[in-house]
Structure formats: C-alpha cells, structure tokens
Design a protein around this nucleic acid. Structure first.
Lengths: 337, 337
DNA sequence: ACCTCCTTGGAGAGCGCTCTCCAAAGGGTC
DNA sequence: GACCCTTTGGAGAGCGCTCTCCAAGGAGGT
C-alpha cells in the first residue's frame, strides 16, 4: 500500500497511467478517453486521493482564498460585535461560497497589524483583498496598491486612488432623511452625525443639511457622535439642553438613533409624537428599537457581495481598469418618524 | 534587474551566497555569521523579497491558517447577524492574531457545503479546524476526525468522540437562574427553552428544573423557542395564555428574553415587578433591553480564544490526547430580575 | 604537530502539482 | 495508398522553498 497521504503519483501508479493524465482527469482539462477516465476515477477513489493545495497553488498562482480585512473602527476585535461587520461578512461569504473561494479574516487596527497584513498578502497567501474601512486616513489602500495586491474597497478611499470600490450615495441618504422630516411637518430639526473624520459621516450630514436648506431651513445644529448607542444618547442629551424645542432628529446610524430615542423617552418626550427620529443603515437595532426606527436603508449585504464579485472579476482579468459602484439608499418607514 | 517577483534565488545571487543561507537568515534557523546576515538582509531589502507562501507550505506542511467553521443554526449566512457568532469570531481572531495565524471563514449549513469543507481541509488548505455548531446531529465532527483533520469544537459533540472541545456548564447556568428567581420570591415560574435538539438547550432547562425542584417547585412549565427574539415573544405570549399568573421566566438566551420582556410589557405587566425575567449569554441585547437583563453570563470570547489555543497546541503536538475544557457560567444582575 | 570536534556555508534532492512539448495513433482526403 | 491533420497519452521541466547531507576551516586537547 501507500505510506502517508496519497499523491498524484500514487494514483497514476494504481491507474497505470502518467501523472499528467490523472491531473487532466482531476482538473477536467483537455480530452481524456472516457474509459481511461473511469480507470483514473476508480484509482482516485481507491487511494482516497485529494489534490494538495499548496503544491497546486505553487504552480497555478491561485489560492482560492481572499483576505477580508476589517480596519479601523476604533480597533480591537470588538468590531465583530458591531452588526455592520456581521452584515458585510454575511454578504461576502454568501457570494464567495458560490465560487469556491473562502475569505480569510484579518484585522488591521494597528500599524503592526497593517504591516503583517501587507506581508501576508505579498506572500501570495490569498489571491486578493477586500478592505472594509471607514477612516479616510487609512493607509492600507495605498500600501496594498503599492504591493501590487488586487483589492476592492468598501467605501471610497480617502483620496483618489486607482482602485475599485463599492459605496453608498450617503448624501442621497441624508437628503432622504431631511425630506421625510420635512414631509411630516418638522421645523426644528437637528442631526447627530458620525465621526467627522469618516467621509461617509460628512456626506450624510452634508446631504441632510443641503436638503434642509433647500426646504427653507438654513440652520441645522449637529452634534458629533461615535456610531455607538452610548454616543447617540450623549449627543441627544446635549441637543436637548441646547435646543429643548427640537422636534426632529436625524442620527447617522441606527445605533445612535436608538440611544437618542431612549434619552428622549427618558426626558418624557414621545417618539415620534414630540420628536421624530430617523436612523441610518436599517440594521438589527432598527427593528428591535421601540418604536421601530424609520431609517435609511444601506444594502450592506448586497454591497459586500458586489465587492466580492468585483474582486473575482479583477482576478480573472488583471488588466481591467478599476470600477466604482455606487448604491442608492432607500427610505424605510417604521414608527419613529 | 530581476523580472517579476523576487525569489530566494534572486536574493542569494544579489547577496552572493547560497539559497540555503538566505533561507536560514529569513527563518532564523541555525547560526549565520552576523556580517553575512547583514549582507543578506540588505539584499532582501534591495530586492523587496517576500517568501512565497505556497512554496513554503508545500515543504513545511504548515499553512498558518485554520478554518473557522460555522455550522447549523438554521443555515444561511444570516448567522453572522446573530451576536453569538460575532463574539466567537472576535475571541478567535483575538487569540490567533498573536500567533500569526489567520482564520478562514466557512459555512457548513448544507450537506454540499459540508462536503466542500471536508475536501478543503483534506487538501491541507488549513492546518486545522475550529468548529462552532449547536446541533447534536451535526455530522461534521465525525467526518473531520475520519479525514484526520485536527479539530476543536465549541460545545461538546452530540455523541462521545475523541476530539477536544470547550463548553459551558449549561446546567449550572440553569441552576443559577432558578436560584435567582427563588431568591427574589418567585413561585410561579416558567421557562422558555431553546430548540430541544440542541444539547445546550436541554442542559439549561434541566439545570433550571432541577434547582427549582430542589427548592420545592416540582413543576415548571416550558415552551420551546428558537433562540430568536420573535420566537421568545411567541413563547411568552403562549405562556401568558396558559399560565396568566406567571411571575418569573427563565429564557434560554438573551434574544428570547428580550422578546419575552416586550410581550410582557405589551400585556401591561411590569418587569421585574410583576414578572421577573432571566436571560442567558450576557450578549449585547442584554444591555440594550429595557430594563437591562439579569442574565447568565457565558464567556463566549474567552471560550472561543481557548478553543483556538487548544487547536494550536494540538498542532504543535499531534500526539496529545483530546482535551475538554468546561467554563463556569455566572449570574449577572441587572434590572429584569 | 596531529587529531578530533564544532561551527558554518554550499550543493542538491525533493515537496506535489501543472503544463508545455512530443510522439503515436487514428481518420479524412485526393 | 500517401499525405496531413487532429486527437490523446507521456515525459519532463519547473514553481519557490526547506532541509539533509557534506565539506571546509578553526579551535582545542594531548
């Protein structure tokens, strides 16, 4: 019998053919005589052969994996608790599995981690990278580009770069929120923005303010939050002090909206009766909140899937020029506004 | 200059040494004369060399990755929305990154997917597997064992198997919940269990009932839920119909507890005044719930980290016999009981 | 001064696979 | 029947790395 793990060689010997023929049968390349094919398949069965991944990718230069890099967002592995990343992961996995590609999870929250990520990718450990980052100053896109690693970003890079990305029209989202608040007659409106060094936060706020201005409300007070429920609560508390008569609030994500709703209710305000609240993302907290949140839907799963799709096509055609795909947000009406 | 990606050979030529010497410098094996080392390092710098991962793992038989397999749980990629898996992922990533090992995410929700997972692992695509599954009937542990893939499970296998695992003392958790409800004077107590084909669900319920019995309450009605907020709400509604005078509820996870609390409040009951509710897990919903949930803490992150640790030690010493590590739950007092 | 032992660099054999090149054989065509 | 083209199997050269062996040289013991 064969000692250790069976190799192509072993199968070839058992089947009485050459290594090349077995390889052809396994990979389905070129024509192989059906009866010979049968013989080879039997031999594979008999030996329990499985192609060795490392050997194969050494010559094909393909690994069948891509890196899914989560960067920034305060750092630390607690990012996985943020439902956003769960949704991204779900979208990515869902698309990739249909193509027999698997994501390798990596965190790039420190400079050391970033360097390790770049090293890892330069080694050809994966075929490409999916980068999910929110911070504009994130250096990873540059470094990946420089290292020649095929990559696709979630959210456009901080500064223009010849790299593919998917993104949401955040300004349109902000506009949608403003339009809704105006439509239900709110006139003393405020915003709880995300961290202002995150481009998406700025865009949401800008879009919101633009649309408010266009509707005759030139001034919209805003407090900066940190995309967490707690920061939303604090921001709301401050708004309540500075503008006690506020009757409409746009929070730049659902978590902050949830925090805001709780503070409002604790202050004896009825939502949406006294104060209408619009969130952003349409993630799990939006439906578990009481009242459920009227929010701006970001199709995270589809966007993540698209990101994976773009990467795979890039891998198949390395010469293709970078693509950008912008998704449209959608107003989802629930109870809070 | 060098065409394409620089290899060991290139570095050796530039440094004027043999391939072996460069390899020794890169890997830090054996002694190499410091000045020669310097020369080699310069050459590496100059060429921009990075070792090729596939070539290396072809000979070392190590990939530096492990599979993180999520199985069952209703299937589909929406499992990532469940905070539980986010916590597992966080714990795993957190531990592995310190050891330069990266997890490859895989879903094993269908038989086809399971077969692909086994194929993937048999190819030696990863060094081992971390299996997170809840269903007792999950066939993957058997198949991995049969395929000779080093694996560690989260939760003990459905039937005894020579494989390492980490788990929680679920019965003790149930007992803790019972003790709390008794301590605050509840006498008409009910349970919302998880799916009864999940061993952990059974254990939580058994532990709960045992402790109640020991306190003089032989009968504890229970309704089976599905670990989701919706199922918890439905179960609570049913309990309310069948036992309108219930004054204490143990829900087998926080999501169901949250659903139960909402139904109770909608029915005009005060929590914990009229009905005390104890959850399980101590996950995000426990703190975002109003009132915040008194719950049984499952240290998911630590358990996940331990699971990864056990796998890595197994890889270093394949002869080591399987280990089981049982964590103790903890009562966390918040507002709901 | 001779021998042994230890340190350190080089040569070269693989690891298991793919893929290009050849050769052999079969089938048309005139 | 001679010729060419197409189909199909085999041989063998790597892919980039590690690691075992071997040789050379220096240090130390007698």
């Amino acid at each position: 019998m064969i000692r250790g793990i069976p190799t192509l060689e072993d199968v070839a010997r058992v089947a009485g053919v050459s290594r090349a023929t077995v390889s052809r049968v396994v990979n389905g390349t070129r024509n192989v005589d059906p009866s010979l094919q049968e013989t080879v398949r039997d031999a594979i069965e008999q030996t329990g052969y499985t192609p060795n991944h490392a050997a194969r990718s050494l010559v094909t230069r393909r690994t069948g994996t891509v890196a899914l890099i989560i960067s920034g967002a305060g750092g630390g592995s607690d990012v996985f608790v943020d439902p956003f990343f769960g949704r991204v992961t779900a979208g990515v996995v869902d698309f990739l599995r249909g193509h027999s590609v698997h994501p390798v999870l990596m965190l790039a929250d420190t400079d050391k981690a970033r360097t390790e990520v770049v090293e890892f990718l330069k080694q050809g450990s994966t075929d490409g990278a999916l980068l999910v980052t929110t911070h504009a100053a994130e250096p990873l896109p540059d470094r990946l580009l420089e290292a020649g690693v095929p990559a696709v970003l979630y959210a456009r890079p901080g500064r223009p770069l010849p790299v593919s990305f998917v993104d949401l029209d955040h300004q349109a989202g902000g506009r949608l929120a403003a339009t809704r608040l105006v439509a239900i007659g709110r006139t003393r409106v405020a915003a709880i923005s995300g961290p202002l060094d995150v481009p998406a936060s700025q865009d949401r706020l800008t879009g919101f303010r633009d649309a408010m201005a266009r509707n005759g409300f030139p001034y919209v007070p805003a407090v900066e939050g940190g995309f967490t429920a707690g920061s939303g609560a604090r921001a709301m508390a401050r708004l309540l002090v500075e503008h006690p008569d506020v009757d409409g609030v746009f929070a730049a994500n659902d978590l902050m909206a949830q925090g805001a709703v709780e503070v409002l209710q604790a202050a004896g305000k009825h939502v949406p009766g006294d104060v209408a609240v619009v969130g952003f993302d349409d993630s799990a907290p939006a439906t578990s909140c009481r009242p459920p949140l009227t929010t701006i839907r970001q199709p995270v799963e589809q966007m993540a899937a698209k990101m994976a799709e773009v990467l795979l096509t890039t891998l198949d055609d390395p010469e293709a020029r970078p693509r950008s795909i912008i998704f449209e947000p959608e107003l989802v009406l629930r109870g809070s506004a």
